[in-house]
Design a protein around this nucleic acid. Sequence first.
RNA 1: GGGCAAGUGGUGGAAUGGCAUACACGAAGGACUUAAAAUCCUUUGGCCGCAAGGCCGUGAGGGUUCAACUCCCUCCUUGCCCACCA
Length: 798
Amino acid sequence: MYEFKLIEEKWQKYWQDHKVFEAAIDPKKKKYYVLEMFPYPSGKIHMGHVRNYTIADVAARFKMMQGFNVLHPMGFDAFGQPAENAAIKNNSKPDIWTHKCIDWMKIELKKMGFSYDWSRELSTCESGYYKWNQWIFLKMYERGLAYKGKAGVNWCPSCSTTLANEEVIDGGCWRCHTQVEQKDLEQWYLKITEYRERLLEDLKQLKNWPERVIAMQNNWIGKSLGVEIYFRLDNSDKIIPVFTTRVDTIFGATYIVLAPEHPLVKEIVKGKPQEKEVLKFIEKVSKETKQVRSKDDVKKEGVFTGCFCINPVNNEKIPIWTADYVLMEYGTGAIMAVPTHDQRDFLFAKEHKLPMRIVIKNPGSESNNPDELVEAYEDDGIQVNSGKFDGLSNSEAKIKIAEWMEKEKIGKIQTHWRLRDWLISRQRFWGTPIPMINCPKCGTVPVPYEDLPVKLPNDAPFTGEGGSPLGKVKEFTDVKCPKCKSLARRETDTMATFFDSSWYFLRFASPDFKKAPFDQKEARYWMPVDQYIGGIEHAILHLLYSRFFTKFFKDLGLIDFDEPFLQLLTQGMVLKDGEVMSKSRGNIVDPDSIISKYGADTLRLFILFAAPPETELDWDEKGMEGAHRFLNRVWRIQENLKSIADPQLLRILHKTIKKVSDDYAGFKFNTAIAGLMELVNAIYQYGADRNTFSILILLLAPIAPHFCEELWQQMGNKGSISKSGWPQYDPKMLIDDTVTIIIQVNGKVRSKLDVPQDISEKKVREMALCDDKVKPWIEGKAIKNIIFVPKKLLSIVI
RNA sequence: GGGCAAGUGGUGGAAUGGCAUACACGAAGGACUUAAAAUCCUUUGGCCGCAAGGCCGUGAGGGUUCAACUCCCUCCUUGCCCACCA
C-alpha cells in the first residue's frame, strides 16, 4: 500500500517551492496554451470541476513532458450575483465572501495536484483587472460599439435586474428561474451585430471544435436569406412590409397577419366596425407572457381588422388579420399567410375558414384541391397557380421570383439575423462599474482614461430590492463632469459578468501588465489558446462573446489573429445514478471526501478511466476502488525488479508507448489507461526490469503525478518527472515476427493460422485449404473466389 | 417541429469495413490464512451439447459487401441544443 496522503502533500509542496509550473517566454520552444473555463468562486469545487480540470491537466502535463513550453493558468470569474445575495443574507460584504470562497477553492484545487502557474492567478473582481473592462468599454464607445438604448428589457423581479435575451431560459431567469417580465429602461448595449458576418464566417476556421457547438453558434447568429415584400393597403398608399423565406409560395398568400403589437394595427382599424373587438384582442394578448404565446398546444387566436391589402404579384385583394402567433420581434412583425404551405397558417385558416390555394404541387399527391389537405405541404415541389413561374421547381422559383420582385420594385432580397445586440447593463453592485458620467449639461460623458479604474465603493446598502445599490452611495454617484466641471451623476449600473470572461484568456499572458489589457509581446507568444476545455452550457454565450472581443482587439490592432480558441473540448456532465448531481437532489459527491479516502491520484485516474471526456460519466464508488487497486498494483512492481528485460514484454512495452502517446494526443484517456493496465498485467506475467518500470511510470505521470514523482525519485532520479522527457518507441519493436491470419469461409471465421508476417498469399492459401478446421466446410464445394488481406485474413467464398 | 449526438454483456465501456465485447467493475470458484482483509489464480454474452463443436447475438427492419457495431435507406427510443423564426 502506498501512502497517498504523505506523497501528495510532499509533491504539492515540491512543485510550489521549485516553481515547476511557472511559465515564461522561450523563443526556442514551441508553446502550448491549455486553458479550462475559469470557475465562479462559489466556495467548493464539485465533480464537474474535477473532471474538467483533470482532463486539462493531463493535456498540460503530457505536452510539458513532450518538451512544449506550457502555459496552464487558473483564475476566478469573481463578480456576480451569488456574492451579493450572500452579502444580503449574512449582512456582510461581497468582496469578503468572494475572497473567502477563492481561498477555499484554491486549497481544494491544490489538493488535486493540478499543474497551474499560480503566479498568474487573477480574479475579475480586482480593480487591476476590471480597470481594463472599463478601458475596453471606452474603446468600444469611441467606435460606436457601446451605445445607450431605451428598450423593453427582460426584468427578473426576484433579482430585480435586467437580463440579456441570452440569459432568459424558457421564459425564466437563468439563475433563479423566476418568470421574467418586460420593463422599459435606459440600458447600455454592445453592438455585437456589427460583427455578425465575421462571427458566422469564421466558424469555418474552427476545424477542431465540436460540430454541435459550431451548429449552435450558427443557429444563434441565425442568418436567413429571404425577401421583404411590400403589400399596399387597399385604398391607401400605405405599405406593409412582410418578410418571408418562402417567396416561392407568394402566389398562395390568401391573407396577411400583423402582430398584435404592430403599430399599424391600431391605425388601420380606426373608425372601422371591428375597432372595438381588435382593441380588446390587443389588450388581452399584451397580458400573455411570451411563454404562453409560444406554446405549441395553445390555440392560435386572432381577429379580422376589417381592412384589406393588395398582393403585389397578382393584385389580389386579401384580408388583414391580427393574431398572437405572429411575433413583433422577428422580421417585420407581419407575415404573409400561405395556409397550404405553412402548418401554422393552415391551422389558423381552418379555424377561421379563410381561403386556401395550392401553389407548390406535391409530387406524391394527385389532388390539387386545397379542401382535401389534412396538413400544410411544406416540402419541395413544382410551382402551380403561380403565373409565369408555373412548372418551375420551387427552389428555382425562389430565386427567379425574388429577382423579378426586386426588378418590379415590389420586394427586396434581404438578410435577416437572429443575433441581437448584447445588453450589458446590470442594476447590481458586484460588477464592473460602467465608466460613464451623466452630466445635466453635456449629456453622457465617458470617464477619461487617466481616471480609470472607476472603483467600486467599499460598502453599499444591500437590500436586494430596487435598482442599482450604487445609486444609493453618494460618494460614488456625485462627481464633476469631466467636460464642464459642473456637478454630474455617475452611471450606477455595472457590467454583465460575461464581459469579464470575454477576454480573461488574454490577460493570463501578462496578468500584472499596467499599461494595457495585455502585453502585446506576451500575447503574441502565448495566444491563441491551443486547447480550451469546459462545459457545453457555454457553447453559445461565453464562446460567442469571447470571439467577438477577440475580433474587436484585432480591429484595435492589438493582436493579429481572428479566433481565440484553436481547439475546443466540451466535457460531459458527472451524474450520480443517472441524474445530474445537484444540491436539490441531494446526490452530490464531495471531491474533498473522496480525496481524503483514496487520494487525488486515484480520483484523477478513475474520472478519466470511467468514460471518454465528452460523454456523461456516472459516478461509481466501486470504480474508485478499482482505480486505487491499480495504483497499488503498480506500486508493488518495484519490489521485484529483474535485471534483464523479457523480449516478449519489450514488444508490449513499445506498443504501449505508441498507444498511450496517441491516445493522450487524441484525448482518449480511458483507452490510454486500459493500455497501461494491459502493460501492468503483462509485467505481472513476465516480470519487469528497471527500464520497463521507469517507462511505465513516465507514461502514467500525467494522470497520477504525485504517485509517479515519488516512484521516479525512489528509482534514483533527480528533479520533477514532468521535466524528464517523454519516452520514445522503437518502430522496429512494433512489428511482430508472426501474425495471426483469420480464415473465413463465406464470411464466417473457421480457423486461425499463426504464420511469419511476410508470408506469401500462395502459401496461406495452401495452408488454409488443407487446414483441418476449414476442410469440412469446403469439401465437395466449388470455390468461387478467395480474398487475401495481407497480415490479416483469407476469405474463401464457395 | 428543426438541428446534433447516442443506443454494444449484469454494469462503465472497447473495436470506425476484417477474430464483437479490450480494459475495468460486479459475480462465482479456488490458493494463501486459525479467521478476515489484502493479494494471487481461474471462470464469466445467450442457447444446444458430456465433449469436440455448432447456432444466435451490437435498438428494429431492409440494402451494399467475400466480410457491417462500423457504410447507405426507413423506423423506434433516449439525451442535449434551438424553436409560432415566417
